[in-house]
Amino acid sequence: MALFWQVTRSYITPVVAAFLGGYLFTWGLVSLLISGMVYLGGDFHNAETIGFLLAFPIFLFMFFWIFIGQRRWLPYGTAFIGGVIMTAAAYGLQTQLIQ
């Protein structure tokens, strides 16, 4: 049992953390991109398409940066905090646009 927790903590957790951080960052970036482009007068479908094209390369980069990054706080911070901020901003912009 102890071995299980040791394996989980040492190996699985960093992978999961990098995956979740990358995903959150990507979600935030894509939603802010879509909301932002529409806010600035762009076409919704076009914004959506650009978002999905950029999403996975960015996700991939963030995953590696978090997993391998030397100064832990920078990639983790960018991903998690940045992701939340961008998501909130996107949601805020949407609220503005819906009115």
């Binding site: 939603s31 919704f44 999905f52 949601y91 646009l97």
Partner: peptide, 27 residues
Amino acid sequence: LTGLIIFAAFYYLPVTNTMLKPLHNMH
């Protein structure tokens, strides 16, 4: 990569079907 992009909107990154659904419907 293209496999992920194809299903992005429905499954993998359903931004416009969830959080931004109101924007999607408005559009």
